[in-house]
């Protein structure tokens, strides 16, 4: 079995009847090597051309979060209104909730962080002040008692 890598079998041996399987194996290896050599140039070319970003195209419906267009109001088509309760009703509820929150979570977090920063600054400043005030006072040299 260790023939394939180390020793190259001669053509004459491979032609022998009992070497049929080995011959197939050797031929396959040879083909693979050839194929790789042939396509390696192309692969790099392709790699050079395609970027590392994948673009998926989508419809405006997904971009703008549009709703289903089949609607019914005022009991005109009870069947549709039943179906609408599953999506339109939920979307409407979410929308109202979003409106009620006049400050979004992100804004809240940002505001909170700035408050934290200012308070922090205040403390750091006041600490410095304290240290400034607490200067080491040299004792006045005077006649000892």
């Amino acid at each position: 079995m260790e023939n394939s890598k180390q020793i190259k079998l001669s053509k004459a041996i491979l032609e022998m009847k009992f070497m049929k399987r080995t011959k197939e194996k050797v031929e396959k290896e040879k083909e693979d090597a050839e194929g790789q050599a042939m396509y390696s140039g192309e692969i790099t070319e392709e790699m050079r051309r395609t970027g590392n970003l994948v673009f998926i195209s989508t419809s405006i419906v997904n971009c703008k979060n549009l709703i289903d267009g089949r609607l019914s109001f005022g009991g005109m088509n009870p069947e549709i209104e039943k179906l609408m309760a599953n999506d339109y009703g939920i979307q409407l509820g979410e929308e109202e909730k979003r409106k009620e929150k006049d400050i979004t979570d992100v804004e809240m977090a940002e505001g909170y962080s700035t408050v934290v920063n200012t308070v922090e600054k205040k403390f750091s400043k006041s600490n410095k002040h304290k240290f400034k005030n607490k200067k080491f006072m040299k004792p006045v040299d005077g006649p000892l008692m």
Partner: peptide
């Protein structure tokens, strides 16, 4: 107009619905 009507933030379709019972199919 279709896109703005299909926006959930647009209250036009619902407010018409309060006055007039109607059904519609609004295609993109």
């Amino acid at each position: 107009l279709t896109q703005s009507l299909l926006d959930i933030e647009n209250p036009l379709l619902r407010s018409i619905g309060k006055k007039i019972p109607y059904e519609m199919a609004l295609g993109v």
